[in-house]
């Protein structure tokens, strides 16, 4: 499966190894893993990801197809979690495979920049001062816009 939405945790290393096992002759593979962040100035104890299943699947499949075509990839995979997560837990992983490294790096960047603002997930953070929906960031819109 090239796009996976799941409630269960995933093992980033095992997913990367499984992806690398099917290389199909490509010379460059990139893995990006997004984790639940918690820092001293913004402590988070838990994060809940709400999603709109049918649209999320559709949007991620569409972005996956766009990435393959645009960067001439040999393969790509997107894994995105929903449900309740904790600091350090992997939220998302994108893996790209191409002949040469530039396309693999660019495609991973494209996938992350575009899925942040185009895939229907919403993060709610819990911390010492209560719970709060994460605001969309203008910098994320700018990052997505540069691929248009």
């Amino acid at each position: 499966m090239s796009v996976r939405l799941q409630n269960q945790a995933f093992d980033p290393g095992a997913e990367t190894n499984a992806f690398l096992d099917r290389t199909g002759g490509g010379g460059a593979a990139v893995t990006f893993t997004g984790l639940v962040r918690s820092t001293p100035d913004h402590p988070v104890t838990a994060m809940t990801l709400e999603h709109y299943p049918a649209l999320a699947q559709r949007q991620l499949e569409d972005l996956h197809e766009q990435a393959i075509k645009r960067f001439d990839l040999i393969d790509a995979e997107i894994i995105h979690r929903y449900g309740t997560l904790h600091p350090g837990d992997p939220i998302v992983q994108v893996m790209t495979l191409s002949k040469h490294r530039h396309a693999a790096f660019e495609a991973a960047n494209f996938l992350m920049d575009t899925l942040k603002t185009n895939a229907p997930f919403w993060k709610k953070e819990e911390g010492p001062s209560g719970t709060k929906w994460v605001d969309a960031r203008e910098s994320d819109d700018d990052a997505a816009a540069r691929w248009q």
Binding site: L49, L55, K116, N118, A119, P120, K123, W133, V134, A136
Partner: peptide, 10 residues
């Protein structure tokens, strides 16, 4: 029809 806030995945 679905109505929702700006998306914040990734």
């Amino acid at each position: 029809i679905a109505l929702f806030p700006p998306m914040t995945g990734g």
